[in-house]
């Protein structure tokens, strides 16, 4: 089953800055895998519910109790860039 991927759009969604040559290579490879994967569409699944958890379980809750937080210095020591007590990032173009 042929699969046609808009690889540039997918790469943008996934925040991967790939050049044209890389995009083309990944497009080809992904299409081969997806054509194999698309075989799942051959299996009739009418009325079959999807499984998102292998073992059925419900209601795993935690009590509303405050627990210890991390030490701020330990956290910020891993930051690629910080400004005082904050993580610093380059300018944000859009509001989410």
């Amino acid at each position: 089953m042929p699969v046609d991927i808009d690889i540039a759009k997918v790469a943008r969604l996934a925040r991967l800055a790939l050049d044209d040559e890389e995009l083309e290579r990944y497009r080809q490879q992904c299409e081969v895998v997806l054509e194999h994967a698309a075989r799942v569409q051959a299996l009739p699944t009418d009325g079959v519910p999807p499984t998102s958890h292998p073992l059925p379980r419900t209601n795993a809750f935690r009590d509303d109790v405050v627990t210890e937080c991390l030490d701020r210095e330990e956290v910020l020591s891993q930051a690629p860039e910080r400004d005082g007590d904050y993580f610093l990032v380059p300018r944000i173009l859009d509001e989410a």
Partner: peptide, 25 residues
């Protein structure tokens, strides 16, 4: 008292990046 998915407190106005843990970070 605590966050949606971890035990960090939700109090408003705490010093920046102090109410954090592996989960909410």
């Amino acid at each position: 008292a605590s966050k949606m998915f971890c035990g960090c407190p939700v109090d408003f106005g705490a010093p920046p990046n102090t109410n954090v843990c592996p989960v909410c970070l």
